[in-house]
Write a protein that binds this DNA or RNA. Structure first.
Length: 489
RNA sequence: CGGGAUGUAGCGCAGUCCGGUAGCGCGUGCGCCUGGGGGGCGUGAGGUCGCAGGUUCAAAUCCUGUCUUCCCGACCA
């Protein structure tokens, strides 16, 4: 059978689309720019969600749910935020349809059912949440308020790609209120650390923690912190953001509290989010020309057992025993008893959908008391005695998780390059790509100019950045540190 | 939102220029043979040609409109 996935070297975009389709992660829908997340894709998202949710709760956050619609007057209250999102908002103007008198069987918007005030479909929930918080916060005893919500949001994007940028997407958005600036900044950084921990230790996707330039900052924030990952095509992906909002929203929505000295103060705020975009990052960090590769910690099914050539009683017995042992260790496993498909076909199919470990059991193996274990990341195959399978697989899953991360780290590190002149800068951006570590004079004007000339943007100023005197690569003006540039998704 | 492509069977495509009532490969149903990396032979099923109008004796094909998807740009998580 012909290869069904375009190779990465031939056409990276097409490869990505092929993976999403062939691994049955998502489909396009009847609605422009909106996707259907299929069971294979949603199962991974559920794992992402479960782990993050646990981490949020361990740090004192609780979940709640706020409405999809935001009255326009609330939405516009925080000016910068409203301005930032205005161009991509869906707006509800009517609340009723009626039969179209001109065309039988058709419906039309009832012109008599215009809303007095339009409702904005949330592109993010700060407005509705801060309007609500005003009623919840009275005293310093009510603080901090640490709330998260899992929700869908809508941003009317011109150009969409499955998972990476869709008009509607799923995400979590945390919205916290604090009595001091320091505590809010600490919260912002704490969440960033959780995101980085999750990205690296669960997704096996190395990230750089940093702070955004003014130009790339979230509208309405004082500071935006980010985790930036690098995809296999050497383009950067913003994988999560955590915002220190200062008192902007507290002032816009008049959220004040009485401090211990009985004085009224505005609260300090944060917001933070990661979205289904992480799925895109996961795909583009690990997958290869044979299909999806999922790190074991997020794989809905970690191990699949394939009988060779087809199941019989003896193979079934061994498979059952192995499954029981694996499950006792908390490993998810599936036994493929489908008699209609051939082993070779199953091998290819499970590689396509990214199951980390495959166990092949045939009569020839059983005569020797072994099974064949194949790992998805390296395609390596090993013979392992039946009795030791559970321990072997448990170790192997850890090893795969680690190997995926190390491989990604190596690639990322090889694609961080220093540039000291603009010619060098352009050569790297247009050549090997990746992050370019270069001096910048700190002005938005220069940043925009560089973007116009090279399409590279400032991804972040790394938190662990070393201070270093230098000259801006474009203007030659003095600079105190290098920042990371890259072409980004 | 601008430029360029695209839409025909589940998937990938040909047919469109030069209108005449739809075809190929893969998949799929059934049968037999096979069986340690996407099997072989045989025999079937499956499409109001994206949608809506129009021209015509006749439209996948020509015209108009509209929508989808992809690529490039602008915008953006």
């Amino acid at each position: 059978m012909a290869k069904e996935i375009k190779s990465r070297s031939e056409d990276y975009s097409q490869w990505y689309n092929d993976i999403v389709r062939k691994a049955q992660l998502a489909d396009h829908s009847a609605v422009r720019g909106c996707m259907v997340i299929k069971p294979n894709g949603f199962a991974i998202w559920e794992n992402i969600k479960a782990q993050l949710d646990k981490m949020f709760k361990e740090t004192g956050h609780v979940n709640a749910y706020f409405p999809l619609f935001v009255p326009k007057s609330l939405f516009e209250a925080e000016e910068k935020n409203a301005e930032g999102f205005a161009k991509e908002c869906a707006v509800v103007t009517h609340y009723r349809l009626k039969n179209d008198p001109a065309e039988k069987g058709k419906l039309m918007v009832d012109p008599d059912a215009r809303l007095e005030e339009e409702l904005v479909v949330r592109p993010t929930s700060e407005a509705i949440i801060w309007n609500t918080y005003r009623g919840w916060i009275n005293s310093y005893r009510d603080l901090p308020l640490l709330i998260n919500q899992w929700a869908n949001v809508v941003r009317w994007e011109m150009r969409t790609r499955l998972f990476l940028r869709t008009a509607e997407f799923l995400w979590q958005e945390g919205h916290t209120a604090h009595s001091t600036k320091e505590e809010a900044i600490e919260e912002t950084r704490k969440i960033l650390a959780i995101y980085a921990d999750f990205a690296e230790n669960y997704m096996a996707m190395p990230v750089i923690k940093g702070i955004k330039s003014a130009n790339e900052r979230f509208a309405g924030a004082e500071d935006t912190y980010t985790i930036e990952a690098l995809m296999q095509d050497a383009r950067a992906l913003q994988a999560g953001t955590s915002h220190f909002l200062g008192q902007n929203f507290a002032k816009a929505f008049d959220v004040q509290f009485l401090n211990q000295n009985n004085k009224r103060e505005y609260v300090w705020a944060t917001s933070w989010g990661v979205s289904t975009r992480l799925m895109g990052g996961l795909i583009m960090t690990h997958s290869d020309d044979d299909g999806l590769v999922i790190p074991p910690k997020l794989a809905p099914t970690q191990v699949v057992i394939v009988p060779i050539p087809k199941p019989n009683e003896q193979i079934g017995e061994v498979a059952d025993k192995i499954m029981a042992n694996l499950r006792a260790k908390g490993i998810s496993v599936k036994f493929d008893t489908d008699k209609k498909k051939r082993p070779g076909f199953k091998f290819a199919e499970y590689e396509m959908i990214g199951i980390p470990v495959r166990i092949g059991i045939g009569m020839r193996d059983l005569e020797k008391g072994v099974v064949e274990i194949a790992r998805r990341d390296t395609k390596e195959k090993m013979s392992v005695p039946v009795d030791g399978v559970a321990d072997f697989v448990a170790n192997l899953l850890d090893e795969i998780q680690d190997n995926l991360f190390q491989k990604a780290v190596k690639f990322r590190d090889e694609h961080i390059t220093k540039a000291d002149t603009f010619d060098e800068f352009k050569e790297i951006i247009n050549g090997k790509g990746g992050f370019v570590h270069a001096h910048w004079d700190g002005t938005t004007e220069t940043e925009i100019k560089i973007k116009e000339l090279t399409k590279a943007t400032i991804r972040c100023i790394p938190l662990d950045n070393e201070k270093e005197e230098g000259k801006c690569i474009l203007t030659g003006k003095p600079s105190t540190q290098r920042v990371l540039f890259a072409k980004a998704y």
